[in-house]
Amino acid sequence: MISEIIFITGSMAILIGAIYDLIAAIGLLRFPDFYMRTHAATVGTIGGATLPVFGAGLVALVYHPLGSQRFFMAGIAFTVGILILVIAPTGSHSIISAVYFGRIGKKPKLIVDQLEEDLPKRSDVAELVREHEELPAEEEEPKFTFRRV
């Protein structure tokens, strides 16, 4: 009984994830500019990849033809899901920052762009990032070393 409920939940997650993926693909194809396409891409990665992977893990837990290997399979599925959940937003963040600060492509018409008002020009971005983070000083003793060369 409980295994059937788990199986149906997992299958529903896979199906819904596939539909999410199709929606994201259509959005990625049809949206006019880059920032809107990133909106579709986040739907594609979280709804279209993480959800079906977790669903596949649930299915693998109760899928009897796999035999005793099914826990290994479920472990792989949950690992992939957590990895995508961590990695995909970071990747989107870094690529959008590259497009915004590097001024790639054409920008949509905005009424007010507060990020641009606050931040300096493209050539100063590296400078700015460096200033905001506290770097260890040059003469600081290394924390971990095998041997001084």
């Binding site: 994201a24 880059f34 396409r37 594609g44 990665t45 993480t50 992977v53 596949a56 590259a98 497009v99």
Partner: peptide, 29 residues
């Protein structure tokens, strides 16, 4: 039109392919 669009497409493509690979792995047993 730009390289960033291609890389965004690669992102989506590879994550979805990873999900698809897990589902196919269950099917292939």
């Amino acid at each position: 039109p730009t390289t960033a669009d291609i890389i965004l497409a690669v992102d989506c493509l590879s994550f979805d392919m990873a999900a698809f690979m897990v589902i196919l792995g269950i099917y292939f047993k």
